[in-house]
């Protein structure tokens, strides 16, 4: 990368506010700074990969956005408006959907019950409309995993890939604006992984912003537009995928050094 000297560039019209902006987020657990002043943003139709080693704080950061854990301080803005996300209900109301690494499924309930958990369809007198929920689930599953047929059994009896489909169905059925995917391919075989990748591309096309958390740098390079790297609770930096090599990102993950700060020698050491 060459640094150009400062010269007035014709600026395009001021870009719209990002879809999501997390500013200066702090989260600590009993004195340990799990997230230490991190700021990231996300635009419509963009995939931002969030990478880092174990305990880097990426899941904790994302739990703030999905309402699973409150931040100690910091700001979250949706389309430029400051919002309060105190619990998962708040996040969903703002169109933020999450596919958790653990999938967060109630194993004793069937697929439709899980897809609609917390947002059940009801009849006029307030009874659950199971038939309508099953019908909608059949539709969304037809798009995600056409071979899925087990609509009457509890999720417990499903395979890993099928469960993943249910978790994804739950996230995309409600017209999400922001999708958080925490290790979406960790439990999947090659065919299913390919399906998820296709889905990410498709959702991106639809203008949904996606935070993709992954430990698999190849995944991230294939799917993400920008890559945010965390190390020990701090943001090392956010880089444009096309501006960096995988080795440079690895250096960020492992040594916390941005491209340019890292020497050729150190890059070679990564491979030894």
């Amino acid at each position: 990368m060459t640094m150009t000297t400062a010269e007035p560039v014709s600026q395009p019209a001021p870009p719209r506010a990002p879809l999501v902006e997390m500013r200066d987020i702090f989260v600590s657990f009993g004195g340990v700074h799990a997230v230490d002043g991190v700021s990231v943003d996300l635009h419509p139709g963009e995939v931002v990969g969030l990478v880092g080693g174990n305990g880097a704080g990426k899941s904790t950061l994302i739990r703030v956005l999905s309402g699973a854990h409150p931040a100690d301080s910091g700001e979250v803005l949706i389309e430029g408006q400051p919002v309060t996300i105190a619990n998962p209900r708040d996040a969903k109301a703002l169109g933020i959907e999450t596919i958790y690494q653990t999938l967060a499924l109630a194993e004793n309930i069937d697929a439709a019950g899980n897809v609609f958990l917390g947002r059940e369809l009801r009849s006029r007198i307030g009874s659950l409309n199971d038939a309508a929920m099953e019908s909608a689930t059949r539709k969304v599953m037809g798009r995600l995993n056409p071979r899925f047929k087990n609509f009457k059994t509890s999720v417990k009896s499903l395979s890993g890939g099928q469960r993943q489909s249910v978790a994804i169905a739950r996230a995309i059925h409600f017209n999400a604006r922001v999708l958080i995917m925490d290790e979406p391919t960790a439990a999947l075989g090659p065919a299913e992984t390919a399906q998820v990748r296709e889905l990410v591309a498709q959702l991106k096309e639809e203008g949904i912003g996606i935070f993709l958390i992954s430990h698999d740098i190849h995944d991230v390079f294939d799917l993400a537009d920008r890559i945010a790297v965390m190390l020990q609770g701090k943001l090392v930096g956010t880089v444009n995928k096309h501006d960096v090599t995988k080795d440079e990102v690895l250096a960020m993950i492992i040594m916390g050094k941005k491209p340019g700060e890292v020497t050729e020698k150190e890059l070679e050491e990564l491979h030894s």
Binding site: A68, P88, Y100, N108, I109, L117
Partner: peptide
């Protein structure tokens, strides 16, 4: 039933 099956999932489900 959802709480009994997975309390965390119920909470995260809203």
């Amino acid at each position: 039933y959802a709480i009994g099956g997975n309390p965390e999932a119920a909470e995260l489900g809203g």
